[in-house]
Design a protein around this nucleic acid. Structure first.
Lengths: 234, 234
DNA sequence: AAAAACTTGTCACATAGTTGTCATATTGGC
DNA sequence: GCCAATATGACAACTATGTGACAAGTTTTT
């Protein structure tokens, strides 16, 4: 599978190389691009030098303890909103609470299931301005900040309206949205537009998604509307 | 790669010539201009007579101990804000803390990776009134104090408005900024200016950036605004 | 103080991209 | 096979952005 210019960059701060590698493999397979780093000091530098979308932070790293790094991070004007997942073997509730208090956004106990890793990353991204969905073997990532959607890191060339429509449908995968609902929420409550127009826009959106084998993500529900399917039937 | 009139001058205070040379090479390659000096007293003179953007200070230098120089520096009215990176082989936490207490802004353990050196310098500059971004193979350095922007040390001839616009966009690379946002933050909240004026200013800014192969850093997001892209676009 | 040089806002036109509608084809349920 | 719902291609209107020119205002030079 080809990987390229993903904009969804994840920084992995983890000193145990095999674990770091494992994380990388699974995240990359899910369409993210990653950077690993094995000590706290270097992590600071990387964070200041680059822009990441999310950080996976091991609690036990040399150079600076994970919590110290986190505390430092939350004081930096430009970094404090970075979503952070703490990774640690210390699964005790107390430790966990301490991490969350310091500003971790989520928590991944070691050892972890690869799927859980990916799921938590996706979930956290979704809470920031991203919407991330696992679709068969592809990851769809809609980033509202950058106003762009990516499939496995490849940028989708969507028009503004299609982008909004996709976002709206992805907001609640599996739920059917009527044409009227979509008109109200995508076009705007006061838009003076035919209901059939929705069909055409759906068509246009599907056309772009098809290029990535995702043409069937958007399902027509006869008599009701459209639905974004998270796990399309075969 | 050609190097010229960088004003991002770095003073290297280091008595071991090979190390000093190594620092010089890597910093110059990254677009900075450097001056080296092998003892503390001479450093004082240089600091008083010239204007540097940053100092790399070895802890063990003849003539005056690194910490003494630093202490002296912080007492000088005109010099006390100079960003300083302490360089030393003493990696113990205690030593490190002492250095930071005396007013070092960052700390570089010896031996160091050339990349780490450059990254720390860039990061520290960014924390002072600089914004430094690595763009493909170029380093863009926007210095608010001096009101000037440089690409690999070459000065960009930007008009005041273009400068502010670039700074604002670089503040959060990857985020789309609407024309209204830019008007509010670059022109000022009460400016009585057409939205289309933003387009023209973007055009002028792009024209200058183009000379350095960075014309595509600023991406138009149809229907939304403009975005500074950190990475090579798709 | 006048002249020259520079900055910036606006306009007008060119270009390119987006979207709504319609006409027609296709599909699904009965 | 029939009807209604949906898909699809084409087109025209519309909208957003790029771009060069110009003028008014500022700053710098002479």
């Amino acid at each position: 599978m080809t990987k390229k210019n993903s904009s969804t960059d994840i920084l992995i701060v983890e000193d145990e190389a095999p674990i770091a590698r494992l994380m990388e493999i699974h995240l990359q397979r899910a369409g993210f691009s990653t950077k690993t780093c094995s000590n706290g000091r270097k992590a600071c530098t990387l964070l200041e030098e680059n822009h990441y979308q999310l950080m996976l932070l091991d609690r036990m790293i040399p150079g600076l303890r994970g919590l110290d790094l986190l505390r430092w991070l939350r004081k930096q004007e430009t970094l404090k909103i970075l979503p952070v997942i703490m990774v640690t073997a210390l699964a005790q509730t107390e430790e966990r609470i301490r991490g969350l208090n310091e500003g971790a956004d989520d928590y991944l106990p070691k050892p972890f299931e690869p799927d859980e890793l990916v799921a938590r990353v996706q979930a956290l991204l979704r809470r920031s301005s991203h919407q991330v969905i696992q679709q068969q073997k592809s990851t769809i990532d809609v980033n509202k900040d950058a106003m762009e959607a990516r499939v496995n890191g490849d940028r989708l060339d969507l028009r503004p309206l299609e982008f909004k429509l996709l976002r709206r449908l992805m907001k609640k995968p599996g739920k059917v949205r009527s044409r009227q609902y979509l008109l109200d929420h995508v076009w705007g409550i006061n838009a003076f537009v035919e209901e059939r127009t929705v069909d055409v826009t759906i068509k246009r959106l599907r056309k772009t998604l098809e290029k990535y084998g995702l043409g069937e993500c958007i399902v027509t529900v006869r008599g009701s509307g459209y639905r974004f399917d998270e796990k399309p039937h075969t």
